[in-house]
């Protein structure tokens, strides 16, 4: 198995690793310690202390926080239980008319607002654009990834997490509490 320097993995993440080194990473049998190194790098780049359990996206992390597992932005903003689609606790800007769509897509480049809406999910803490959806009206937001964290740590990494929880989508539980 290959092994790569943490510094090179950082360069890869930043898009500055020289191409021959990237090719080496692509072609070599994968390094078994990559996950731990990646998490260490990500942990070193944020200003908060909660332990990263899983990098959900380049900007969002599932972290252990006071016995809970929550989604947290690199800026420190917290979105709540990772089993609830974090988008429910984000800011959203929706482009669903010709004028707002034209700010991104001009003239012939514009999709038809009767067919699609462009949803921008924004971090309330830092203004990062975390995800963009282009879907027709009526489409629930994608819950892109609900990881089975306990199976991952227990069966794949061989080091179970404390306080194992239920692997279940809790998004609709929140929706049912909202006023119409």
């Amino acid at each position: 198995m290959a092994e790569f320097l943490k510094a090179d993995i950082e360069k890869l993440m930043d898009g500055v690793l020289p191409w021959p080194s990237v090719q080496d990473m692509l072609k070599s049998p994968k390094d078994l310690d990559r996950f731990d190194k990646y998490v260490e790098i990500q942990q070193s780049r944020v200003a908060w202390d909660e332990k990263i359990l899983l990098p959900l996206t380049p900007a969002l992390f599932i972290v252990a926080s006071d016995g809970e597992r929550i989604v947290k932005c690199r800026c420190g903003h917290e979105f709540g239980d990772y089993r609830i689609n974090w988008k429910l606790f984000s800011l959203i800007h929706v482009r669903d008319d010709a004028k707002s769509i034209a700010e991104i897509y001009r003239g012939r480049e514009a999709p038809d607002a009767g067919w699609t809406q462009v949803r921008e999910y924004i971090c309330p803490g830092c203004g990062s654009q975390l995800e963009v959806e282009a879907v027709p009206r009526g489409c629930p937001p994608d819950f892109e990834f609900l990881p089975d964290l306990d199976t991952f740590y227990r069966e794949w990494l061989g080091r179970p997490l404390p306080d194992e929880g239920e692997f279940v989508d809790k998004t609709l539980d929140v929706i049912t509490t909202w006023d119409e």
Binding site: E109, A110, A134
Partner: peptide, 19 residues
Amino acid sequence: SKIVANHGMYGAYPAWPDR
């Protein structure tokens, strides 16, 4: 041709429609 792909991965804007 009427819509763009739902490929706004990590906050990107998808490629425009085919016209």
